[in-house]
Computed example of a mutant assay.
Amino acid sequence: MNNVFGRMQPVFEWITNLAALNITWLVFNLPIAYLSLLLVLVEHTSQILMIILTIVVFSPFLLFPATTAMFGVVRKWFMKEEIKIVQSFWKFYKENYKRSLFGGFFLSFLWLVGVVDFLYIKSDVSFVNFIVLFILAFLFLYTLYFFSDTVHTESKLTQSLKNVLIITIANPIFSFGIVVICIIVLYVSISYLPFLIILFTGPIIAILGFYGYQKVFTTILNVQK
């Protein structure tokens, strides 16, 4: 029996760490979490746009710094470092706030344009819908890699945005697989297992995003040697 519990202990630790990180991330994003819940409940396009606009306004100040901090903790996990989650989260939050803020202004604008296009430029032509969804998927991947690059390198913001673009398109098939898995996680969390949103969804996507970024980033470095 003790042997069984000994084998299960790492699993319990991982579950606890994921939940602690996700809850910490949500606490720092309470206004956006509340607005996102409203977004699911409203039906009229005008209400949806108003909520989306409010989320976009808040995102550079709340969502981007908090998500960068979450990616910072995930990076430490990849480096197999023992850390205290809440203390480390707060440390990464403060260290990267300014960079996340200005990067958030740029990316929030792109997301606003992309979502408005999706809502208003819907077409019966499946090809047009495919193009819009492809752009949003690309932007989703670019955003994940931006968070990863922010905590993994010390390059200036403008250079980081350029580097992330290169990393995003460097291995499209692999990166597309990362996006598909992340979308599946989001879909299952929202549609079938909403408790995952409270406990696990954020860190799981951060782990997938950083794994994809690190894989492509390392490949590029090896090619340049």
Results as ranks from 00 to 15, higher is better:
residue 154 E to Q: 15
residue 148 S to N: 10
residue 167 I to C: 03
residue 76 K to C: 11
residue 113 V to K: 09
residue 145 Y to I: 05
residue 67 T to M: 08
residue 141 L to K: 09
residue 76 K to P: 06
residue 69 A to I: 02
residue 75 R to H: 07
residue 73 V to M: 06
residue 45 T to S: 11
residue 76 K to S: 15
residue 62 L to W: 02
residue 126 S to R: 10
residue 87 Q to V: 05
residue 156 K to A: 10
residue 143 T to N: 14
residue 45 T to P: 14
residue 80 K to N: 13
residue 101 L to E: 03
residue 46 S to D: 13
residue 160 S to M: 13
residue 100 S to Y: 01
residue 53 L to S: 13
residue 59 S to M: 01
residue 49 L to Y: 00
residue 83 I to K: 08
residue 107 L to D: 07
residue 144 L to K: 05
residue 43 E to T: 15
residue 123 S to W: 01
residue 89 F to R: 02
residue 113 V to M: 12
residue 101 L to M: 10
residue 159 Q to C: 06
residue 58 F to A: 06
residue 49 L to F: 00
residue 106 F to G: 04
residue 47 Q to T: 12
residue 144 L to Q: 13
residue 134 F to S: 15
residue 84 K to M: 08
residue 117 D to K: 06
residue 63 L to A: 12
residue 50 M to C: 01
residue 113 V to L: 14
residue 67 T to W: 00
residue 83 I to C: 09
residue 62 L to G: 07
residue 169 I to F: 15
residue 129 N to T: 02
residue 123 S to T: 06
residue 158 T to Q: 12
residue 97 Y to I: 04
residue 116 V to H: 04
residue 71 F to L: 09
residue 98 K to M: 00
residue 59 S to A: 13
residue 69 A to H: 04
residue 124 D to A: 12
residue 44 H to F: 00
residue 88 S to G: 08
residue 153 T to Q: 08
residue 113 V to T: 12
residue 136 L to Q: 11
residue 137 A to D: 08
residue 116 V to N: 08
residue 75 R to F: 02
residue 90 W to A: 08
residue 74 V to L: 03
residue 62 L to I: 11
residue 117 D to N: 13
residue 60 P to H: 08
residue 164 V to F: 09
residue 80 K to I: 08
residue 101 L to Q: 05
residue 146 F to L: 11
residue 116 V to S: 09
residue 94 K to T: 10
residue 172 P to E: 13
residue 93 Y to T: 07
residue 76 K to E: 15
residue 116 V to M: 14
residue 102 F to N: 05
residue 59 S to G: 04
residue 54 T to V: 09
residue 127 F to S: 11
residue 80 K to S: 12
residue 169 I to Q: 10
residue 107 L to S: 11
residue 151 V to C: 07
residue 110 L to I: 07
residue 120 Y to H: 11
residue 165 L to K: 12
residue 81 E to N: 10
residue 65 P to E: 03
residue 125 V to I: 13
residue 117 D to W: 08
residue 146 F to I: 03
residue 42 V to D: 08
residue 104 G to F: 02
residue 112 L to T: 03
residue 138 F to W: 15
residue 73 V to S: 10
residue 77 W to N: 05
residue 124 D to C: 04
residue 153 T to V: 13
residue 135 I to G: 07
residue 149 D to C: 12
residue 133 L to Q: 13
residue 57 V to G: 00
residue 55 I to V: 07
residue 95 E to D: 12
residue 93 Y to I: 03
residue 118 F to N: 08
residue 71 F to I: 04
residue 117 D to M: 14
residue 133 L to D: 09
residue 118 F to I: 03
residue 143 T to K: 07
residue 121 I to A: 13
residue 154 E to G: 14
residue 42 V to P: 02
residue 79 M to G: 02
residue 170 A to P: 12
residue 105 F to M: 05
residue 46 S to H: 11
residue 126 S to Q: 12
residue 173 I to S: 14
residue 167 I to Y: 11
